[in-house]
Simulated assay, not measured.
Amino acid sequence: MVRVFILWLAVSLGAFAQSSAVRRVILFGDSITAGGALPKEERGMLWVTQVQEQSERALILVNEGKGGRPTNSLPEFDEMLARHAKADALVIALGMNDSRDITPQCVPKAVANVRAMIGKARAVYGARLPVLLVGPSNINKAALGPTKPIANEREAKLRELGAAFEMLAVETKSEFVSLFGAVPDAALLKDGVHPDGAGNDAIAKVMGKKLKALGW
């Protein structure tokens, strides 16, 4: 009886240690991940910062966001892989910059690039690496600025990219979450693309819930 109890205790403690382990998640994204468009007084409201703090030390989010980054940044992705010896999960949050290309080639090229990233990451971190693909967020067409002439076309590409990334997630046994529609128009008044602090709050709610439920 004592031996059975000891075995049960060992298994239970092992399961607890596994469930309570700190997970290191790499976020490979663009300026919305980097937060470069937030004013200094709102930098602490970046969605990445919020999600990490709200995880109560369960997540370490490695912010590899960079302004202006499209999906064809495969050399930068290789450099990122070389910088980080360990990752428990990968988040790929791209597509906003690809949507400037309103030609029919936009979505197939983006999908091919993201598929390559997933393959590269799993070759480095293991075939069972959890990957979360993020469908790009919505824009405020009325505040889009210099790219306003293609506002409708760009919005359509964002929808197409999100749908294509969702299909790619199924193909690659990855997870998917869409940010399209998550950000209120009022939070995109700066340039129609980059969310303010309130917009980052909205993204944090979506991403925090998804990362917490990620198939670890």
Rank of each mutant, 00 (worst) to 15 (best):
H84S: 11
A143I: 00
Q105V: 12
E155G: 15
F176V: 08
G119L: 09
E175F: 08
V124S: 01
A156P: 03
L158W: 07
A156I: 01
E79F: 08
R100Q: 11
D98R: 00
K120Y: 09
L144W: 06
E175V: 04
P136S: 03
G135D: 09
A169D: 04
G135A: 12
S178E: 08
K120N: 08
P149C: 13
A123D: 14
F176T: 08
L168A: 14
L129G: 11
S178D: 03
V91N: 15
R128M: 10
I150T: 15
D88S: 08
T147L: 15
R83M: 01
R83L: 06
E166L: 06
P75N: 12
L94E: 01
L161R: 11
N140A: 14
N113L: 05
V124P: 03
T172C: 13
R115W: 04
C106A: 08
C106K: 03
S73I: 02
K109H: 05
V114G: 03
N140M: 07
S174M: 08
D78E: 15
V134C: 02
S174A: 15
D88P: 08
V114R: 02
G95W: 00
T147N: 14
N138A: 09
P108T: 13
E155K: 05
M80T: 11
V134Y: 00
E175I: 09
I118H: 02
N113F: 02
P130K: 10
A110P: 09
F77E: 06
L132F: 14
L81C: 05
E76L: 15
D78S: 09
P149G: 15
A163W: 01
L132E: 01
E76P: 02
A142T: 12
E175R: 13
P104A: 04
L74T: 10
N97C: 01
A87Y: 05
G95P: 00
A85R: 02
L158H: 09
S137C: 06
A151K: 08
N72R: 14
E79L: 15
E153A: 14
